[in-house]
Design a protein around this nucleic acid. Structure first.
Length: 274
DNA sequence: ATCGCCTCCTGCGCGC
DNA sequence: TGCGCGCAGGAGGCGA
């Protein structure tokens, strides 16, 4: 589910509702997530003040007085804040009660998400330490992408979705950015020149920034911590538009599978470099 | 080193 | 109405 804009939206909700709050109780209703939750997870959190909330890639890092929580929403994870009186829903796996009685509830039907509590610096955890640059940072620029595309025959869509190359670009925004940059998703990385990389980097930043400003993309069930959907769906040019008319040329949007993922594109507007 | 395939899990929409 | 199938926003791990 969540790509970078959705995770950023959830992070902003955590900042608004959980930052500077003390954790009074943690209840785990389902330990079996992407990785099993450690048995002492609840005990590590209880009684601690939440002193920071940050995002790195699609991970949210919650800083406590002692240690840090690393959380990933997987494909179907969501966080909401509710009063204890509100009935629990199926798939509400983690319930964190705060000092103001509000409960942070982690809901994740597919259970691809994960929660870890680490003693030291979250950024040196194996899950975070080999991640590529943030897409909205200056470190992700045309020269950087150009250098990494040299001598690689890997198709470009797969490359930009690789979290070691650049983080936060999932299936939706990869498809949208490639359309915006007029690059066919099956283009070979090494066939792109510096101008193509310039366009693609700009398109990725634009797609992510626009999506963040609209609260992310709600396809089916993504909601922020206030249970509101995101509105980037209305902006989508190709993702989930297979068979429909391209808004630029009125040709038909095609789709192929790239590394097991549906990949929509306009064969007229997007040039295949190989 | 690099790449692509498989896997974890539930829910939904579709066609029959 | 119901059932089975394929597909879905991620990404680690493995084998080629």
């Amino acid at each position: 589910m969540p790509e970078l804009p959705e995770v950023e939206t959830v992070k902003q909700g955590l900042v608004a509702h959980a930052l500077d709050k003390k954790i009074t109780q943690v209840v785990i209703r389902q330990y079996s997530l992407r990785w099993p939750i450690e048995q002492d997870f609840a005990a590590k959190l209880e009684g601690q003040l939440i002193t920071g909330v940050h995002r790195r890639a699609k991970y949210i890092v919650i800083t406590l007085e002692q240690g840090e929580v690393i959380m990933h929403l997987g494909m179907s994870g969501a966080v909401c804040f509710q009063a204890p009186e509100e009935p629990l829903r199926k798939h509400d796996h983690i319930i964190i009660t705060l000092c103001n009685r509000q409960q942070l509830r982690y809901h994740d039907p597919r259970r691809f998400g994960s929660w870890h509590c680490v003693a030291g610096d979250a950024y040196s955890h194996p899950l975070l330490k080999s991640l590529g640059p943030e897409p909205l940072s200056d470190a992700f620029n045309a020269q950087y992408l150009y250098a990494l595309t040299r001598n690689r025959s890997r198709v470009i869509k797969s490359l930009i979705m690789d979290q070691q190359i650049v983080v936060g670009v999932g299936n939706i925004y990869a498809a949208e950015a490639l359309f915006d940059a007029r690059i066919h998703p099956l283009s070979l990385s090494k066939a792109l020149n510096i101008e193509h990389c310039t366009k693609l980097v700009a398109a990725i930043k634009k797609a992510l920034n626009t999506a963040i400003s609209l609260g992310g993309t709600t396809l089916r069930d993504f909601v922020n911590t206030d249970a509101k959907p995101g509105y980037f769906k209305q902006q989508l040019a190709v993702y989930s538009k297979e068979g429909q008319k391209c808004r630029e040329c009125s040709g038909k949007i095609d789709s192929c599978r790239i590394t097991q993922r549906a990949s929509a594109y306009c064969a007229t507007c997007q040039h295949l470099y190989q």
